[in-house]
């Protein structure tokens, strides 16, 4: 198993621990990652506002870089996953658009033929590696740990763009069970963390963050696990102030997906870089 690794801006900036632990987990599980150097940003939800064409150009460049390596893309960011998939679907469905985008790419010596597939780490663990193989690699079963699976929006919706309904198939719950932990049931699992409102309206985002954390706390979870670094930014970095505003003094640690997997694989707490989180990770020994 070898992939063109595209961590996205957040994992290279605000959540370096997500990038670091993905590499460790991949190495432990025999998944080879070849990072797409200099791949830049996918445009998130913002560049398409400037122009859909610019968004397509950015994503086609990333897809083309992976095509050059002859590898599928593995990303660890939900928004990158959705953007790359949406661009890929459109470029495959509209030959005229692909031609125009290739005209732009030709200026930087690239071209794209529509052959790259884009997967999230969660998909790779579920289908390419398989939960059976993951189970065999578990060294420290997380028995008794109550985990609130928080999918984040862009790995769940729109299903037609993503091609795989991770929430309906309860994939994150299945993965949590594979690690011998217990996935708690709660209403917030596929709701929005508010990340994209943080910059334009922090107060509104703070309300969304507080709702999601409260839902997990009410379900008596020991921690939240998310496959998206953007959700991690919202739920960890802004947790204290969001809960403070609604008068809640308890906190709940938020783990990146590779951190939870890494914990079960026996990777040390130091290497999982919990110390980088703003909310103390106090789940060890539970």
């Amino acid at each position: 198993m070898k992939y063109a690794y595209y961590p996205g801006c957040a994992a290279k900036g605000s959540t370096p621990e997500a990038d670091f632990t993905t590499r460790l987990v991949a190495q432990t599980l025999g998944i080879e990652l070849l990072e797409l150097q200099n791949s830049g940003c996918c445009g998130a939800k913002e560049i398409r506002v400037v122009s859909r064409r610019l968004d397509l150009n950015l994503n086609a460049r990333i897809l083309s870089l992976a095509q050059g390596l002859g590898l599928d893309i593995l990303t660890i960011c939900n928004t990158c996953l959705l953007n790359l998939n949406q661009a890929n679907n459109q470029l495959k469905a509209e030959p005229e658009t692909l031609q125009k985008v290739n005209k732009s790419l030709s200026k930087i010596g690239l071209s794209y033929d529509g052959s790259t597939n884009v997967k999230h780490l969660l998909h790779v663990l579920l289908t390419d590696l398989g939960l059976d193989r993951l189970k065999q690699s578990v060294k420290t079963p997380l028995t008794g740990l109550k985990v609130a699976p928080f999918y984040g929006c862009h790995i769940v919706r729109p299903v037609k763009d993503l091609g795989f309904d991770v929430a309906k198939t309860e994939s994150l719950e299945a993965l949590v069970r594979t690690l011998h932990a217990h996935p708690v049931e709660y209403p917030g699992r596929t709701k929005c963390c508010g990340f994209y409102v943080l910059m334009p309206n922090e107060a509104a985002a703070s309300g969304m963050i507080a709702h999601r954390l409260e839902e997990a706390l009410k379900a008596d979870a020991d921690c939240i696990v998310t496959p998206c670094p953007l959700c991690h930014v919202a739920l960890d970095m802004f947790q204290e102030q969001a809960l403070g505003k609604v008068g809640i003094r308890r906190t709940i640690p938020v783990l990146h997906l590779p951190q939870l997997v890494g914990l079960a694989l026996g990777i040390s707490e130091k290497n999982l870089q919990f110390s980088r989180h703003l909310v103390r990770v106090n789940i060890l020994g539970k």
């Binding site: 929006c153 409102v197 309206n201």
Partner: peptide, 9 residues
């Protein structure tokens, strides 16, 4: 308009 969280729900 900019309070939309882009969640697609």
């Amino acid at each position: 308009l900019f309070d939309c969280a882009c969640c697609h729900a």
